[in-house]
Write a protein that binds this DNA or RNA. Structure first.
Lengths: 196, 196
DNA sequence: TCCACTACATTACGACTGTAACGCAATGAG
DNA sequence: CTCATTGCGTTACAGTCGTAATGTAGTGGA
């Protein structure tokens, strides 16, 4: 028997394992035994904490979404309050884009959940909730920058980021292209701000 | 026994069925029996034409990609030669975006293949080849419009379209938002062209 | 007409799937 | 200490998976 663990910790650990499995092997590799092995537990443990596979996936999406939003909020909220919006937006973009392996795993996992959500309303709800949070977060920064239509600018930036994630994980573009594109867009959206 | 059919026609029909199944039920629904039922054949027929499931998927991706590129080329090539680039680009965008059910099926299918490609180099190659064709197609139009960096503009537009597809199929944005965003971007990228 | 061949259909099989059922050790309350 | 409860591990099972094997009807050439 392995170390006994706080249930929420164990659920989190399993959710992380789901992400790695999904990221590594694609949708066909997502089996309970595979996840269990990745998490270092047995299928019995998974069954105990989630009862069903769909429940596990639902929690996994919530878990990762929560973590991501927290990270982004920290980026937006830290520093002496009047941090330049451009810098905050750039930080948010970098946090979302798959520029290191950890973010790449997140991106691949998100993509895997995306199609499931397209055929599963429960998952789609989670996505929309998280997107709403993200949108207000970004739109606030555009608002602070004084652009005429902060909502539209926020939608466009998030949209571009989504596209960059997808194209990057297909190898259609490289890391340098990603960064260049983000800067290009930020320069245009807020031309009066100081560079950096 | 069903009607005997030209092999390439049969393969195409099966590929279409794969797209519909993938679009409708997500990755878990993609079984040979499901595809066979959708195509109105037996698993034996599928096996005869593709021998393996992966082969079937590979062909499916190629098939749909080919069709899409042909449609787009037709859009770009038709009309008395000097059709305004803005109009051509808009037509291309509309052809790519899930504004009707047929394109929505294509978008969901593409998303489903995307994650598979992330873990399957053979599929990724197909994606990259098709993306290259698409890129030159779009970049040509930007070139004709006389923008300073046609490549970057093409990448950005395609990137935005990719993001719009994803967000649309999650229900995060609506059809009107999609069209508005495309026009917004086209207005900015090529401000000197005539409207329409 | 005969024959090789193609285009399927049918059946069968072993591997693998998610989940139910059961067992048991550790833990906290009394 | 006792004891119910929680947190797993183990085993079993029915169903589904992709694929191999085999059969057969239709087809085009000689």
């Amino acid at each position: 028997m392995r170390t006994r663990l706080d249930p929420s910790r164990r659920r989190a650990a399993i959710a992380e394992a789901v992400g790695r499995v999904l990221s590594r092997g694609g949708p066909d590799a997502l089996g309970l035994r595979e996840v269990a092995a990745e998490a270092g537990v047995t299928t019995g443990a998974i069954q105990h904490h989630f009862t069903t596979k769909d429940g596990m996936l639902l929690f996994t999406l919530e878990h990762h979404g929560r973590r991501l939003v927290e990270r982004l909020s920290a980026r937006a909220g830290s520093a002496p309050q009047p941090a330049p919006p451009r810098r905050v937006l750039r930080a948010i973009a970098m946090e979302l884009l798959p520029l290191d392996e950890e973010r790449a795993v997140e991106a691949r996992m998100a993509a895997a959940f995306t199609i499931r959500a397209a055929a599963n309303p429960e998952l789609a709800v989670i996505f929309r909730e998280q997107y709403a949070l993200l949108h207000t977060l970004v739109a606030d920064q555009f608002g602070r920058a004084g652009v005429p239509d902060a909502d539209a600018d926020a939608r466009e930036l998030l949209c571009l980021i989504e596209g960059l994630r997808t194209q990057r994980l297909l190898g259609e573009i490289g890391d340098d292209t990603i960064v260049a594109m983000v800067d290009r867009v930020l320069d245009r959206l807020e031309p009066n701000a100081l560079p950096g």
